[in-house]
Amino acid sequence: MAEEKNIISLQYKVNGEDFSLAGEASSNVKKILKQLGVNPEAIRRVAIAMYEGEINMVIHAKGGIAEVNITPEQIKVLLQDEGPGIADIELAMQEGYSTAPDNIRELGFGAGMGLPNMKRYSDEMKINSVVGKGTRVELIFNI
């Protein structure tokens, strides 16, 4: 945690092996944002978008790291994984497009709404991805 500045940094390891644990990081962040008194609408957006990100890392990349930086002006969520990467980001951003395998779809995930929802609920979204290396998604929420 940085000194002097008004910033809270949180880091979570998103476990890729257990589906039932996906969402733990976002629900932790939600609790902290409520205690900080962040406005409920912003909390809602962060919780939903971050949960989508977590699920993506679990489905496609066997987990990853979620970092959250909170300042009085904005919340920044950084999701990084060392998964297969996204070949065509533009295509991946389309609603309904998904590369999730059948067994994941059977669980009710992989509807192709993950990335579109992350974009919809955040104020700014940056994706960098290298096939074979991994993906880095940055979400910014103004509060």
């Binding site: 945690m1 809270i8 900080l36 409920p40």
Partner: peptide
């Protein structure tokens, strides 16, 4: 909504408290 779980009504103070809470 009754925000009784807030650490402080002032967000900057709440952040300071959260920082020491985590520690």
């Amino acid at each position: 909504y009754k925000p009784i779980l807030n650490l402080d009504n002032d967000m900057i103070k709440a952040m300071k408290k959260m920082e020491s809470l985590e520690k």
